[in-house]
């Protein structure tokens, strides 16, 4: 059975976000760490922790200068065309390249069309340089979250087969988390 994941939601009230995720058929979410660990959450950190943690985490950055850092798990792509050539040259294999749907909610039809073309292009690039495309909601409250079925529709719109995407994301997360040193609570 495929597990759907939204690796980026921002909210201090994580319990509320987890309840919303359950209703929306999202099995696991990614969020910032606020001092306590929850089940079905992968935490997003800016830097690798110096001590062993009791929670799973991924190190995330949107700074182009950190693209080649050995500790980086996810690079957030804000402006694809600006960073495309740098990505091809500098990106390390098997890292995640993340893009947020929240970025285009307010965009007009023309910009949304362009954005989806960028995602299709990014997906091709990910396949060619052996990286993982990560599509996240970037939600800042429960009503900005995206349900599992909606994610599947958006993936189809990006010419990505949902089953393949969720399976590849699962395998990629297993590999990334498998390399980390954390105590499974």
């Amino acid at each position: 059975m495929l597990r759907r994941r939204d690796l980026c939601v921002y909210d201090n009230n994580l319990e509320k976000m987890l309840r919303a995720a359950e209703i929306l058929e999202i099995d696991e979410i990614g969020s910032e760490y606020h001092g306590s660990a929850h089940e079905n959450v992968i935490y997003r950190l800016n830097r690798p922790p110096s001590l062993i943690t009791d929670y799973p985490y991924l190190v995330v950055s949107d700074k182009i200068g950190e693209l080649s850092s050995p500790w980086l798990d996810i690079f957030v792509v804000r402006d694809y065309f600006r960073v495309k050539s740098i990505l091809k040259k500098k990106v390390r294999t098997r890292i995640g390249l993340e893009i947020f749907f929240a970025d285009i909610r307010q965009a007009n039809g023309f910009s949304v069309g362009k954005w989806f073309e960028q995602v299709r292009d990014l997906y091709k690039l990910c396949n060619s340089i052996n990286c993982q495309l990560v599509l996240s909601s970037g939600a800042r409250c429960p009503r900005e979250m995206i349900s599992g079925r909606c994610f599947d529709s958006l993936l189809n719109l990006c010419n990505i087969k949902p089953e393949r995407y969720w399976r590849e994301l699962e395998e990629w997360i297993e590999i990334r988390l498998g390399k980390k040193c954390y105590v499974d609570a």
């Binding site: 749907f101 909610r105 009503r143 900005e144 349900s147 909606c150």
Partner: peptide
Amino acid sequence: VLMQPPIVV
């Protein structure tokens, strides 16, 4: 999904 203000299915 692409509505602003956001609504959820």
